[in-house]
Design a binder for these strands. Structure first.
Lengths: 138, 138
DNA sequence: ACACTACTTTAGAATCATTATAAACTAATC
DNA sequence: GATTAGTTTATAATGATTCTAAAGTAGTGT
């Protein structure tokens, strides 16, 4: 696999040592056409199935947090019992299906630009996140 | 205190027995001019100080969940380590100060109406929530 | 007022996700 | 190959929330 060298470079260039575990996780997260959402638990289970060698849960937490800090992942907290990570780090919003707890990307062009008509002294806007909760219509 | 009878009526009319504990919590949450945000832990500490008789943590959880189910409170999840409840149950949005973790109401008129140009088959919109993260501007 | 029943409160145990610990391991550098 | 700084790991610790089951209380009928 030659994709590995891309990930190795990516990791190294951001000051993270390209360990077996990190490369494995990179392949799982970033070696695909479409971005996606996952929970730590999802990732742990998938790695357990897919990978020959077991990656410990602590390592998964460590790695995901490093990746988030480096901007390779976004964290989306939709409710207290579910915290998702998103491999799509571009500016976008989400649907949350409250019947299934599924999180779905909402492209930027599907939401009118949100403008805030109030600002607080000494503060600036860091991000604007729209969460559209949806449910079965019948 | 005659306000109590208002809360007793409110509780009874929604099928909740007006117990000492629930009335106490009602007074703390709803007997004020302005709405506010709180965590379960905030509430527990305040009740411990204010109240003559201790209300157990389990009761606080039970009560807050009942109140939420009855629509007297809204839950706002801004990140995984903090879950706020809001006594303002009207349709509105929030600022989150990422330096202090403070949650601040954003009146509806301060945000342009958000319209979603996409809909998913078999699904309808339940709510649209805007979270504006702010940080120190210097 | 009394008894009955269903609901509520409570302390403490159980659970679950996440973080901390500290020993073993490994990549980078010389 | 030796050194060292960063990484992984199993396990323990933590902290928030939920569960449990026993004791308490409000509502209803008598």
């Amino acid at each position: 696999m030659n994709n590995n060298s891309i990930f190795i470079e990516k990791l190294r260039s951001s000051g993270l040592r390209p360990t077996k575990q990190r490369i494995e996780i990179c392949k799982l997260l970033f070696d695909r056409k479409k971005t996606f959402h996952f929970t730590i638990n999802d990732l742990f289970k998938t790695l357990k199935k897919m990978s020959s060698k077991k990656i410990s849960l602590a390592t998964i937490y460590n790695t995901i947090h490093s990746f988030k800090k480096k901007g390779y992942l976004k964290e989306i907290s939709v409710n207290k019992d579910k915290s998702y990570f998103d491999t799509n780090t571009s500016d976008h919003h989400h649907f949350l299906d409250i019947n299934t707890n599924e999180l779905i990307d909402l492209k930027k062009e599907h939401v009118d630009k949100v403008t805030i008509k109030k600002n607080l002294p000494g503060k600036k806007i860091n991000s604007i996140e729209v969460l559209v909760k949806i449910e079965n219509s019948n």
